[in-house]
Amino acid sequence: MSSQGGHTAAQFSILPEDQHQSFRLVELPPEILQLLESENPPILYFKSAEGTLGQPKNSTAALCTSDKTYHVRQVNHSNSVFITQSSKLRSENDNVQSSSGIEAIATSGFTLELTPVAKTESATPYLKAMLPLYISSDQIEPRDPITKAQLFADVPFSEVECNQAWKSLTSFESSNPPGCFRPSGKAKIKAWISILTQATATSVDLTASVHAEQMSSVVDTTEDWPVELSYAILDSLCIDTKDGRCLRKDQSLRQLGIWQLDALTQGGRSVAKAEFMSSWSDCLPEKWRSEATLDVLQGAYTTEENGKSLRPVDETQVAQTQAKLSLGAKRKWHEKFRPASKKTA
């Protein structure tokens, strides 16, 4: 055996294909490698979108850690890649000692490449497309009710990113009506005003730190919308403090402005600036009323009729136009090669 090779020569054999095991090779970015080598490596997940946003199914396959998402791309290779393991050789001749060799137990035609998703991508458009719009308990987009877990399973983003998007849409899960929803601007403002009224009535100052028990006392359980909606409102506007929670000032001013603008322009119409400004400051805690200026809402509205009326900016539309623009640029890049290829033809 060693007439040609040195002492390290190992017999190389290939198992018949029908005995091959099935393996997939995944390129590991440093962060994933670090996770796998940590003391308690976490479970990762493959996720894919259920063709929600009009893309073909597999184009949105993703590998997720608890808080990060990687796009999965299949890269084919033309070489033969064998996955081998060491094997004990069977020896027909008893005089020859059986030595170990290596045996190809699988071949792999491609590698899965992982690239982190761009910072501009988020789970929000997916959730927005999948969650039925809640206007009031009598006015809900008709969809089959699904649980939050079912919903997240079909969104190709990590748990943390799904939760961020869930929160950014003030989504809620309730038992009556059953399912998950994203409330309309009107529904959010209505629930918020109820919270604010209740807080004033029970002399709870939401702009200062409020104890958890007191916080729940501002949620009126007799209203005709699910309490989960009211809690979702509080979740999206409040931060935790040392001894309870309080409204985040900048965030709340802007959020309430956006919701109010959304509520007043339902059906795609625009709203007079004066009307909007007064209803916006009406839904703010007394202390903050004077701080409602359009600067706070920068980027969230467009003006019409020489600045006399306002219209909200649809964030998903902005994202879509950006996507189209970048696609356009890519196509132009491709055009560059057209004259060249004609010459060769």
Binding site: T8, A10, L25, S80, V81, F82, I83, T84, Q85, S100
Partner: peptide, 20 residues
Amino acid sequence: TQNPLPTILQTPSGLALIEI
């Protein structure tokens, strides 16, 4: 089984890659 490959190529499960 004893892994006949140089140490650097040895993995805990004994798998290695050969590309041709």
